[in-house]
Design a protein around this nucleic acid. Structure first.
Lengths: 123, 123
DNA sequence: TGGTTACATAACCTCTGGGTTAAATATACT
DNA sequence: AGTATATTTAACCCAGAGGTTATGTAACCA
């Protein structure tokens, strides 16, 4: 499942340095040295971050002489967006409407339940 | 900045158990024992996962007798969605149009550049 | 050929994350 | 008061993440 990828994608995004690198790459390809400039961090550290991003499928690296330009690879970000869509109603609906939704779900599934709804196939 | 929260939110979402818990909670409040049922895992492990989700602001817990019902708290998910929006064009635009975009960005910012664009204030 | 630049790999350290079992706490039930 | 149920806390273990310095490799330059 796409499930497997989600864990490594989220893990990769959980680091501010890596998110900053992605933000930089959003304005175009860049070689490693340039990506490293904003950070007070050794090159190997940056290299590791890039490897994490690459393994997570968030960036791709090519070769150009002695440079290794990096660019954003958007597929996994799209998967994250799709995963998030399942929860959109939680922040878009007004709270009242959300309550309505849950109450409806509850009574439809298990009319006698009072405390909490029972497990039901998710998603 | 919202930046601080993003790291803990993404970190919380990087675990499949925790995402499954969120998926379950998407269909309504549930107490801890019920959340634990699908998993071959000790209660303290679940308890820790819930604490991570709570600290990340992804769930909230209340009290009801000896139960601690959990529910989704959508604010942080919304922040993730907003963060993602900055990258939407990367998976939505056709590749040609993306190339156009980057080329335009590049020439506008630094007309003489050939290999790669220079650093520029991000986002 | 030798030096410089760009980057990766190796070896190491430390801290945290995710799991365990055992014990504590809180509420309800009789 | 005494037991059962629900949940958290404590103490521990181990693997992995994120950083370091030192070293290796590859391409360009003179």
């Amino acid at each position: 499942m796409t499930n497997d990828y989600l864990s490594s994608t989220f893990a990769a995004l959980a680091d501010p340095t890596r998110r900053a690198i992605l933000a930089r790459l959003a304005s175009g390809e860049a070689p490693v040295t340039e990506l490293a400039k904003p950070f007070d961090m050794s090159m190997p550290a940056i290299s590791k971050h890039l490897k994490v991003l690459e393994r997570a499928g968030l960036i791709a690296r090519s070769r150009e002489a002695q440079w290794r330009p990096c660019r954003i690879e958007a597929g996994r970000l799209k998967e994250v967006a799709e995963w998030l869509e399942h929860y959109r109603r939680f922040w878009e609906a007004s709270f009242d409407r959300l309550d309505d939704y849950l109450r409806e779900l509850k009574t439809k599934d298990n009319p006698k339940e009072k405390k909490h709804v029972r497990k039901q196939s998710k998603n």
